[in-house]
Design a protein around this nucleic acid. Sequence first.
RNA 1: UGCGGUGUCGCCAAGUGGUAAGGCAGCGGGCUUUGAACCCGCCAUUCCUAGGUUCGAAUCCUAGCACCGCAGCCA
Length: 561
Amino acid sequence: MVEETTATEPLDFIRRQVEEDLRTGYFDGVVMTRFPPEPNGYLHIGHVKAICVDFGIAEDYGGACNLRFDDTNPVKEETEYVESMIEDIHWLGFEWKELLYASDYFDQLYEWAVQLIKEGKAYVDDLSPDEIREYRGTLTEPGKNSPYRDRTVAENLDLFERMKNGEFPEESRVLRAKIDMASPIINLRDPVMYRILHTPHHRIGDKWCIYPMYDWAHGQSDSIEGITYSLCSLEYVNHRPLYDWFLDQLGIHHPRQIEFARLELTYTLTSKRRLRRLVEEGYVNGWDDPRMPTIRGMRRRGYTAAAMRNLITLTGISTANSTVDFGLVEYAVREDLNRVTPRGMAVLRPLRLTITNYPDDQEEWFDIPTYPQDKENPATHQAPFSKEIAIEQEDFMEDAPSKFFRLAPGREVRLLGAYLVTCTGVVKDEAGQVVEILCTYDPATRGGNAVDGRKVKGTIHWVGARHGVPAELRLYDRLFSQEDPEAVEEGQDFTANLNPHSLELLDNALVEPFVADAANGSHFQFMRQGYFCRDADSTPAKPVFNLTVNLKDTWAKVSGG
RNA sequence: UGCGGUGUCGCCAAGUGGUAAGGCAGCGGGCUUUGAACCCGCCAUUCCUAGGUUCGAAUCCUAGCACCGCAGCCA
């Protein structure tokens, strides 16, 4: 009798809650989420997690997810960011039910504020920002009531209306919720609901002189949209009691808020302020620099949407702050690229190899499998071979240890897809540097196999010198040299941890013809080297490729390289 | 000295009283016309600490310890 084994993946704690609600009918079977970014910067790897959680959970349970821009602060927000975010989310492969803005709800929010004033639950405060801070108390001491806290409803109504009409300067007054200045939860000490801002809004112009605070806008926005799961990061745990209070006073739909930990990665920074400094101070070449953890940067680097989404699955969702090893990102990227990426040959640092017994004017075009990793896909491409070819400098050692399976004097290796060659000598310049390798080839090994059945341990890649195409290769490494970029000595900042070798330009690389012709954005594996992505900086004369991620390199580890 | 949250393998992370899943990394081996990929094996007698309850505890109780968040008219 065979046991039925139901090996189900364990659910994360959010999905488990959703399933329980579905079972009990808590929200009548509705699963509605939203991704609520503030349009004040570019989306980065941290947002990828939020996006995958918000959209992913809706997707998993037949629900829907809105994209809502939380645009409550006109001094920081711009349309440019709205557009880039839309593009980035689409690139990740998600589609929203509705595209909305918190500013869509400003009228409703205003009405609700008036309602709270009428009920004696909100008041206009004339205290200055400094005074408000003083009156708020500290983490261990209670705050005290503002002298304006007990104004009459009529006076509050009048003042609030005049705030809206622009009669007062910024910072002269705010509207506050009347809750409890002695609450141990600081968010409940009469939080500000509206402030005066004479700044036009990027979408709705100068219609408003007062703008709702995030805390006043967010929960109600979710409520209006019928959101059932308000998924957010851990720091909002402290705000939940306030959102609950607002929703309860108003008596409107109450989403279930569930907080989860943000994604942090070693060697990576996700603070908007920090990323902005990297760009503005020229440490990187813009927001889409392939070293940036922005979605645009990663995309240009050659990371795929599938890899990013899988990374989130791999890291999981929990309520414990954690920092994921960057190696997991590389794993996710390699795993996705390995399956589908065409293979080509590129010599990063060329060394001339001359086959002395190969006819001077002979030329052969070898059929090289383009997808050797996929036995189902027999596609090949042609690689030109002649007397002179280029090999990788690393693939030759004059005084090689026995474990070195590549070319060395007297040793035989396979030129991938072509012939077996044996090194017979080297040519050196005046400085004693090896500038050329001399080899003989065995004509009976065409395609790379010896008729006599002898084996060679090493196979190296090559590019024909006659038809190889010069290319620029940009080798990227992690942007920071410390796991925690913020870990610096007294008096220094994170820029002290910038990795000086995060970009290495290889201007003399050679690629085989078929990769040179690819479209920008095409992915390749340059065999034995890594995954590369053709950059938009390519010109017809010279293609440019970005290193997405290198291949694992056991030899480098063994040899101490 | 307030409130809230979190502590399970180097990094993530399951586990919800019945005797520590999985992934990454690492290590060993196989295979290999990519020293890649792939395949096989190894990798927590122990769950922050100390007591207690129980036949039985990572899970329950008590007391500690450590780390994170909160004092914007930012989000």
